[in-house]
């Protein structure tokens, strides 16, 4: 059994439909076996079309800023250079999911809401969403553990942006509130 139930969501960008209609919950699971049964039967992120997302969130939290668990939160963002899609994307997304379902963030684990992988032509992104952007100790602990679990270089940095800041920036990236 897992600590909590999780839901996998899939987003496919079809411009004729509203954003929310393009977001579908695939399934829920609450055991390690059911996680692997799901993982072994869906496409890897690197095989998805540009414009698609997967999101894995605690059951009951929708993968959008507006959800009450997300609206005060933010995300640790890992931006991948285009050439990394074939090298690192699938492993980084799997390790992100294993951190989530294994509750790898210690006492701050409940502050982790979920994660999203965006497949984009200009560069893929993986983001870990947390509940309270102002909880510095929690956000920093989660960021340090996450960076280590992904095996990112000491020289690399990842930034944390509050959703409230991201939501008001349509094109350029929101400022980093924290960096590890």
């Amino acid at each position: 059994p897992l600590m909590t139930s999780w839901a996998l969501w899939f987003f496919k960008n079809e411009r004729s439909r509203a954003w929310r209609e393009n977001l579908q919950m695939v399934t829920r699971f609450d055991t390690v076996e059911d996680f692997w049964a799901l993982y072994n039967n869906i496409k890897l992120p690197s095989k998805l079309s540009p414009g698609c997302d997967y999101a894995l969130f605690r059951d009951g939290i929708e993968p959008m800023w507006e959800d009450s668990s997300n609206k005060r939160g933010g995300r640790w963002l890992v931006s991948l250079a285009k050439q990394l899609r074939h090298l690192d994307l699938d492993r980084l997304w799997l390790d992100t999911m294993l951190c989530l379902i294994g509750e790898g963030f210690g006492d701050y684990g409940p502050d982790v809401c979920g994660a999203v992988v965006n497949i984009r032509t200009k560069g893929d992104k993986i983001a870990l969403w947390t509940r309270e952007a102002d909880s510095q100790a929690s956000v920093m602990h989660i960021g340090r553990v996450y960076k280590e679990r992904l095996g990112l270089s000491m020289k690399a940095t990842i930034g944390y942006q509050a959703h409230a800041d991201t939501a008001t920036k349509s094109n350029s990236l929101a400022r980093n509130k924290f960096v590890v």
């Binding site: 059994p1 897992l2 390690v32 993982y39 294993l98």
Partner: peptide
């Protein structure tokens, strides 16, 4: 309550178990 925590090694081993 009790926290259920699994490390990467355990989770990966579960993938391959029958």
């Amino acid at each position: 309550g009790t926290r259920i925590i699994y490390d990467r090694k355990f989770l990966m081993e579960c993938r391959n178990s029958p």
